[in-house]
């Protein structure tokens, strides 16, 4: 197998990259300048040595604790619970949340045999009991697994008296009511807000 074949084979293992895309990327890299390729190779090689999970929130970081956990300007009374580290980046990009995060590492999925003990729920509970949080935001995905996880957290934290909220589900901005599906529309109706309340 040639070097090029091996590269195509490796690239095609990446998510969303099929054999054709892998070949296109490989041919693009051949034509790129050597310096770019060397930098890319070093960056990939260093990923696992330099990036690890934050010991507090579980996010990907190069320093422990991560910059979010050590940022004194953040609102330490709010904690947003997400399924995966990449969800933090998505929420951060909204520019609308300035509290702390906690990564569960997945969601409860009975059909796949994934229960609470396989997720970072124990460390979340310890954090909440040791901290001074006034709200826990369950920002798990709006799927059966995400909803189940949010319900579980709400039940688990009931005795602490700290409210658990769920991200709202509803109509997309700029969308058309006519094209909304029944479930989203029903949830939007249930979660409607009084004008002037935001």
């Amino acid at each position: 197998m040639t070097t090029l074949d091996m590269l195509i084979k490796s690239l095609s293992r990446l998510p969303g990259v099929g054999a054709k895309s892998a070949a296109r990327i490989a041919y693009h890299l051949i034509q790129s300048d050597g310096e770019f390729n060397r930098k890319l190779a070093v960056q990939i090689a260093e990923l696992q040595d330099r990036v690890f999970n934050c010991s507090i929130c579980g996010s990907y970081t190069e320093t422990d604790p991560c910059p979010i956990c050590t940022d004194s300007s953040r609102d330490t009374s709010l904690i947003c619970v997400v399924e995966h580290p990449q969800d933090i980046l998505t929420i951060e990009s909204s520019g609308s949340y300035f509290g702390l995060f906690h990564v569960l590492g997945g969601a409860i999925s009975p059909l796949d045999g994934i229960g609470p003990e396989q997720l970072a729920i124990g460390s979340l509970i310890r954090r909440i009991k040791d901290g001074h949080f006034s709200e826990v935001i369950a920002a798990t995905n709006p799927t059966e697994e995400g909803d189940t996880t949010a319900l579980y957290l709400a039940r688990l934290l009931k005795e602490t008296g700290i409210p658990v909220s769920r991200l709202a589900s509803g109509l997309p901005i700029g969308g058309d009511l006519e094209y909304a599906d029944r479930i989203t529309l029903a949830r939007s109706m249930r979660g409607r807000i009084r004008l002037g309340s935001f």
């Binding site: 409860i108 999925s109 059909l111 045999g113 229960g115 609470p116 003990e117 579980y152 039940r155 688990l156």
Partner: peptide, 14 residues
């Protein structure tokens, strides 16, 4: 069944 183990785990708190 896999779901049964999760059901037991969650059943301990609900």
């Amino acid at each position: 069944p896999k779901s049964l183990q999760v059901l037991d785990e969650i059943g301990r708190i609900v």
